[in-house]
Amino acid sequence: MRREAPQKIGDYAPLFFPATMLIVFFVVPFATMIAVSFFQRQQAGFYVPAFVLSNYERFISWFFANVLGFSLMLAVVVAICCVVLALPFTYLLTRMQRKVQIVWLVALLSVLSLSEVIIGFAWSTLFSRTAGITNLLVMAGILSEAKALLPSFGAVLTGMVYQAFPYTVLVLYPALVRLDPTLTEAARTLGASPVKAFFTVVVPALRNTITATLIMVFIFALGSYLLPQLLGRPQHWTLSVLITDQAIYQSNMPFAAAMAVFLVLVTLGLVALTVIAGRKGEAA
């Protein structure tokens, strides 16, 4: 049966339920959020319909500039760490036996599906004084006394790399599986070491994939809403944490919505960049 254009109105019937659900429960809430970002905040957490720009005006402050700068910087560092760690890993993984690959994929998916609450709890335990990794170092005689490694920037970074690493591998995986193995074979036949073949053949061949992956992991890291709060100090809070904080604990929905709209714009800009990078990759 060939694909054909819908003939009569009844042919559109299957579309009805999914389209209604997606419009009512995604498009409309999204529009509601944008509308609320222009509303006027009242005392005690209420807000009234209005058209004010005061929620956006709050962005023009040193505090907000700092939060934004820190969020972007943190996401960039996380993205770079993840791609550097994951690229050789994924490359070697795709060259392994199918069975071994599946075991690793199951493990990666299991870690990826963990909620931030659990990742935050697990790492705060690992970095704590009483149950942390330093206890093992004390037992091994490397440290004289157990100590807490959090809250700190290092703890936030480690937690976020842990969260984003499986995602990075799964984003890289399809491109690396499809990579023509004869490329590296040719390099090896011509006398390149495996490491040299990886850096001179695999990495340049995947330049666009790597760019796209960096951007995707960057967006993923930008979305982290709990780890900076659980593992860091208030100065390590990111835009996502701030949005949650304003919406739930400060009950300032209009301001939270304005920040969320801003975050969407940043994200969409980056998605557009990814698409452009992908286009270039196809043209090359």
Partner: peptide, 19 residues
Amino acid sequence: GVAPFTLPPVITALGLLTF
């Protein structure tokens, strides 16, 4: 359908909260 998963989760969450 793919958008909620691509955007930072806090955005979908906030959209649904306001809705």
